[in-house]
Amino acid sequence: MSMHGRPSAAELAEAVQEFLRTELMPALEGRLQFHTRVAANVLGIIQRELQQTGAQEQHAARLSALGAGDDADLAARIRAGEFDDRLPELVTSLRQDAVARVLVANPAYLVESDRR
């Protein structure tokens, strides 16, 4: 439990989302309504990112299994052709990584088999 207690940061983000969707959006139209929807979606991203557990560690473990220090290092090695003969392994690892990020950014975007 965080020293800040409840509501947690995720719960606060959720509360603001609910306010934007149920109270503010119906009172608006056009561009303002659209941008309010975007703002609510952004709070959804924040909420899911705060609630995601273990993703950072799994990301680091995947990088280390590929022998890379960080994303920039991995990108440079890919560019240099170091993974040309290990494509299936690389694609599998990168896909797991991408799924973890889309689960936060926009879970509905994933194909059925990647949704948890």
């Binding site: 659209f34 941008h35 975007v38 703002a39 979606n41 952004v42 991203i45 494509l87 299936p88 694609v91 599998t92 990168l94 896909r95 991408a98 799924v99 990020r101 889309v102 936060v104 950014a105 926009n106 975007y109 994933l110 194909v111």
Partner: peptide, 26 residues
């Protein structure tokens, strides 16, 4: 702009889509 900021988090959707195609082709 909040809209432009939010688009930054759509990069991962495109990364995911690239990997879907490469996975299929492999």
């Amino acid at each position: 702009s909040v809209e432009l900021a939010a688009i930054g988090r759509r990069v991962c959707e495109q990364e995911y889509d690239v990997l879907l195609v490469l996975d299929e082709l492999l």
